[in-house]
Nucleic acid binder design. Structure first.
Ligand code: FES
Ligand code: FES
Lengths: 152, 152
DNA sequence: TATATTACAATAGGATTAGTAGGAATTCAA
DNA sequence: TTGAATTCCTACTAATCCTATTGTAATATA
């Protein structure tokens, strides 16, 4: 019941870009360092996000990546689906042609449908902008804590 | 975001036993045939369920398996956790010692917490007895449909 | 122009998961 | 007591997922 690293890393990558939205281009190298993720693996992931039109790139020296749209226009669900293909907990539920022969009689299928809906309700409601806000609030909180510690 | 085959098969296996609860012993062979799952793979799965005390076995000829307790006492969540270890969508959330070093600063962790809760709310509320009921209602429904088709 | 930096691409290796295979141990029934 | 059915045990193979390696193409800057 794990979300693949692709999905998880893609979300952290997109959040990193979202936090820097409007600023300069961000390199994969910097994201990898900040997030503690393999640089080459991130390259593969960001390539997929680029193909989906979620990020724009500039090649060459001083190049890098940036978000294609405003952070508020990306939901967590969009990003996960792009990387994982579907949020269905079982392949029997994948919308495509992949319909399971047992679907008509399968009692457990209903369980998975409910799980799928529950997950989607969560991830389709959270946008990158929400997460950026969480981040900014956390930064302020940490700063206050720091100031308090040193009695300033 | 897939549930492992072990978890899915275990649920179908347990449901099969639940439907036959109170009757005679059920062999792995029969379950494998009914569910269309590899017999040898099911053996490994049911061994794990036996170790957890969820099923009882009788060896030798005329042997087989049966549920250790009443179907109402098993939730889907119990079975999945037994097979998958945890329902957390990321290992960073696994209760154990496995705490992620980034947890304190990780913004996305909150997303995964919400996903985990949403999934648990579903699977911890459904028992095998509920699924048996679904099955029985379906059988009646199918019978009515059959009778109707032949105008009896 | 030369050089360093960076995106882009393809592939190979390692780790984990999914599934297969063979057979030993146990028990019932004929 | 023999044979068949069945659980139980161990090891192997195949597939998938994650990461690392290697190299090419494009671009800014000196
Ligand atoms: S096994 Fe495919 S629908 Fe249940
Ligand atoms: S990466 Fe482990 S808590 Fe976010």
């Amino acid at each position: 019941m794990k979300i693949s690293t692709k999905g998880r890393y893609a979300l952290r990558l997109m959040l990193d870009l979202a936090i820097n939205y409007g600023g300069e281009l961000i390199t994969v190298k910097k994201i990898a360092a900040r997030q503690g993720i393999s640089e080459k693996y991130l390259e593969q992931i960001i390539t997929q996000l680029k193909k989906a039109g979620y990020v724009r790139s500039v090649r060459g020296s001083e190049g890098g990546y940036r978000l294609a749209r405003d952070p508020a226009e990306y939901t967590v669900g969009m990003i996960l689906r792009q990387m994982e293909g579907s949020l269905a907990p079982v392949s029997c539920l994948d919308e495509e042609v992949n319909l399971c022969a047992r679907a008509a009689d399968c009692i457990t299928l209903n369980v998975w449908k409910k799980v799928k809906t529950a997950v989607e309700d969560v991830v389709d409601q959270i946008t990158l902008a929400d997460l950026v806000k969480d981040y900014q609030e956390k930064v302020v909180l940490d700063l206050n804590l720091y100031l308090l510690t040193f009695k300033m």
